[in-house]
Design a protein around this nucleic acid. Structure first.
Lengths: 331, 331
DNA sequence: CTGAAAGCGCTTACAG
DNA sequence: CTGAAAGCGCTTACAG
């Protein structure tokens, strides 16, 4: 590689490395370095194809200009897109992003935090796992800049960017109610995470208001055995003496699997059962009828989170911010 | 943060930082450090919660234990998955991955290479853009370890991992021929990249063998205006006096858009037109009929590429390897 | 106002 | 065989 160092440039021009650093970083204000000399340094650096070594800079300055991103499931298109927008936006601040994945495992989240810490990221953007609260609290205690994404914890000691889960879920349920559904089921995945609870609560509120709420309409599935659980849940729901006429799926993955199950059971959507989904999937576009869904503002979520994090990095006293973005019902 | 440095540990134990480094990196062979002392050092490091600073290590050792990954379109699920498997596998070598995206722009690819170089990645995994050959050659000239993914260039001076595009495309076309299709169209996107050419050539070979080849059946679309181009192409194909009865879509994205266009035109698959796709989409599962597709071994591709790259990093004289993995026709 | 020196946290080549 | 010193490439606090 034989890469050119700042000293090489300095030697060539006949000044100290410090002067070169000052000029190239635009810190030669107050006429500290004459414009003629500065110009000469810049030209020589260009001619020699000098590229700063980020590692050395980071080690010395204590700033790596790197963000550590930890998502719960990168194979989920929602998180993949989120990662994409985060990276695009971070680039505008000259920040790089190291993306890591936990597969919803708190153990892996701990490992990823350790790796990113050893790489001296300036801050964290995290979609936390269930039970990940202690790990987050540890980062907070160490005064490490951090913004949570999509999910959050009851103890509001960390900034977050999420969507209005409660309100949008209520709207989604109301959509089915307005289509004259009476027995609307809700399938969500078992977790203590609040965003999922809020979705369920929104559903319950809408159903209760119409006096149609029945606890047996709610089915919980496990993340690890989701497909089988959904299959079992739907089977129970349709074989009940009072058949269901609608389903509100609480997430992207649940929706896709749920629609597959319905197809396998030869249940037609929306003829036999009407459906509404939380989050979009390219799959919907191709199904024989268009399916209503709650659209999350994913680019906005990523961008806002980056903005908040950069602000925290630059100002350790930046206030906590809890941001709920509007998700829209599309149909 | 007040993080613990190697010197803090050394001071506490009463030895030099060098000795601590030796012990913790397992380089105290030949009884260089007595087992008792080594044990004491390890215990103290644990007790003090010492975590090495990767930046300092990388700066000194010249190895960042980081891979730079450059993909052409992270919003494409194929590449998103590829990135995921690469990361999972790299972790086994204690390597981190910085994922970047080019949106098929060579200009952006140049920028990403510069960023990753300044971060001193040990090697590159690249899904190159069209016209990206010069940039690749520059890396090769600088003896930087590099493995191409999915795509490759005529001048075989870089290792790559790809799939057998020609053979699997031929098989896909044969599938439609065996279903008694006579006028099978092929929609691919305009590029000089060889992987796409190979897919077209496989299609042509299969059609020619049955004396059914007609150049007007091949439609080229542009990456930037893909949806409109596909719409126009299909309109032309179906309004031709000899109507088509089959389509082979050359990529993931083309397939999804193509199926949407067919749906909008009220053309039923497979009743009116039979279809086969290169690459899978969750969308297929939900369409009213299951759609045959060529399944790429994405996890294997990611893992093999990481293996090859690590080998190059560890041995600058490692031979070039051109690997074609088997893609399977699923129906 | 400006240059030379110190030092970020490591690892490794080199004296003793 | 083993310890202390040099140095990776930068930036910044500190003398002059």
């Amino acid at each position: 590689m034989a890469s050119v160092s700042i000293r090489d440039v300095a030697d060539r021009v006949g000044v100290s490395a410090a002067t070169v650093s000052l000029v190239l970083n635009g810190k030669d204000k107050n006429g500290r370095v004459s414009e003629a000399l500065a110009e000469k340094i810049r030209n020589e650096a260009n001619a020699m194809n000098y590229k700063p070594n980020s590692l050395a800079r980071a080690l010395r300055s204590g700033r790596s200009e790197t963000i550590g991103l930890i998502v719960a499931d990168i194979s989920n298109p929602f998180f993949a897109q989120l990662a994409f927008y985060i990276q695009e936006h971070a680039e505008k601040y000259n920040y790089s992003v190291i993306i890591t994945n936990t597969n919803e495992s708190t153990e892996k989240m701990e490992k990823m935090i350790a790796i990113l810490n050893s790489r001296k990221v300036d801050g964290f953007l995290i979609v936390p796992t269930e039970n990940g609260e202690n790990l987050i609290n540890k980062l907070v205690a160490d005064k490490i800049p951090i913004v949570l994404l999509d999910r959050y914890f009851p103890e509001k000691n960390v900034s977050y960017v999420a969507v209005n889960n409660y309100k949008s879920s209520k709207e989604a349920t109301n959509l089915l109610l307005n289509l004259h559904c009476k027995r609307i089921a809700h399938i969500y995945y078992k977790t203590s995470l609040l965003h999922m609870q809020a979705r369920k609560d929104g559903y319950i509120a809408a159903m209760t208001k119409k006096n149609l709420f029945d606890p047996s309409l709610i089915k919980e599935v496990n993340y690890q055995t989701m497909y089988n659980d959904i299959q079992k849940a739907i089977l129970e729901l349709v074989s009940h003496e009072q058949k269901i006429d609608g389903i509100f799926f609480a997430s992207n993955t649940i929706s896709i699997m749920g629609l597959n199950v319905l197809k396998d059971m030869h249940i037609e959507v929306p003829k036999d059962i009407k459906v509404v989904c939380f989050d979009k999937s390219e799959a919907f576009e191709l199904s024989n009828s268009s399916i209503p869904y709650i659209q999350q503002p994913v680019s906005e979520m990523g961008e806002r989170a980056v903005d908040l994090l950069i602000r925290q990095i630059n100002d350790k006293k930046a206030p906590l911010i809890f941001e709920e973005l509007q998700a829209n019902l599309m149909f």
